[in-house]
């Protein structure tokens, strides 16, 4: 089920390349060439078949069954799994929480990633140091990040609440109050995402020719106008790429949730993937978990499709 999700996201990641519609060249393929092709494709096709295509189809198949706790299908129930999920208030709550989480994480990651990259681009003393620091979270594992943020959010020894008490602000039980737990998870995920996002954006900013800014400067164009009318359009393919990657990755979030809130409190952070994990591996309900996987895949596909529809128009490839 997890594999299916991964596979789906892989397909979506490849889409931007496919978009630059190259003219199809028709080759005259004779039988010997075909044989060659099969030899070359064979090994990877085999691996894909075993680890991707089969699990995908199996998930689709299982989603139509009730299973025993070993994952064997027992009773064919058709679309009933789907129906019961879509009418379950707790599933819909998960769905809603996931949307909130995904949208918040994607937008904040994009904004802060871009801000950090822009800030690190200024040629000032010590900017190299900050470039290293900003990309640092790339090298941090989920478990380490979880421990770090558990300490940060801890109401008695956590830094955040210590600052709050110094400022005479109310102390927040970050991980045990439903509204705040979601905020805490979003903050930690954005923090985790920033390293990668920063690095990609920073790289993209370096490719914008300095002359464009000089030309604008001479014409008296303000810095903010330069950012929105030169920088953003110039790096729009990267922004688009990062937004798609981030969206898909946040739909798949699992580690931080498992380690920090375990879906709680009161299911406030019980996001779709975490729920799949619970249904399959804690409750042994493989059929239902498969159904959830299929639905998640469809949701990701729809979101990505919408992103392409809405955002791609604003992207200029060079």
């Amino acid at each position: 089920m997890e594999q299916q999700v991964t596979n789906n996201s892989k397909k979506l990641k490849q889409l931007p390349q496919n978009l630059s519609s190259l003219k199809t060249v028709s080759y005259d393929v004779n039988a010997r060439d075909k044989l060659h092709a099969i030899w070359f494709l064979g090994p990877s096709l085999l691996v894909l078949a075993v680890f991707v295509f089969y699990p995908m189809l199996r998930t689709l198949y299982l989603s139509l069954f009730l299973t025993n706790n070993l994952g064997k299908p027992t009773v064919f129930v058709g679309l009933q799994n789907y129906w019961s999920l879509l009418t379950s208030s707790s599933y819909l709550a998960s769905l809603q929480a996931t949307f909130v989480y995904v949208i918040a994480v994607s937008i904040l990651t994009l904004i802060f990633g871009l801000l950090l990259a822009q800030a690190a681009s200024f040629k000032v003393k010590g900017s190299n140091f900050f470039r290293t620091v900003f990309s640092g979270t790339m090298g941090v594992s989920v478990s380490v990040a979880a421990i770090f943020w558990l300490f940060m959010f801890n109401p008695s020894i956590g830094l955040l609440d210590q600052i709050a008490s110094v400022l005479h602000l109310p102390v927040i039980n970050w991980l045990t109050q439903p509204g705040w737990a979601m905020t805490a998870i979003v903050i930690s995920t954005v923090w985790m995402n920033l390293g990668f996002t920063f690095l990609i954006f920073f790289g993209a900013l370096q490719t914008v020719p300095v002359n464009l800014y000089e030309a604008a400067q001479i014409e008296g164009v303000s810095k903010s106008y330069q950012f929105f009318h030169i920088t953003l359009p110039m790096i729009s393919p990267t922004v688009f790429f990062v937004s798609i990657i981030t969206l898909i990755e946040s739909f798949k979030s699992f580690g931080l949730i498992d380690l920090m809130t375990a879906g709680g409190p009161n299911n406030a952070t019980n996001l779709l993937v975490y729920r799949i994990y619970q249904d399959a591996f804690l409750n042994g309900n493989y059929g239902l978990a498969s159904t959830e996987s299929v639905i998640l895949a469809i949701i990701i596909a729809i979101f990505t499709f919408l992103q392409f529809k809405i955002l791609e128009k604003r992207v200029t490839y060079q």
Partner: peptide
């Protein structure tokens, strides 16, 4: 100012 590489906005 006119630049060697023209400094045109590709978009």
């Amino acid at each position: 100012m006119v630049f060697q590489n023209y400094a045109l906005f590709p978009f």
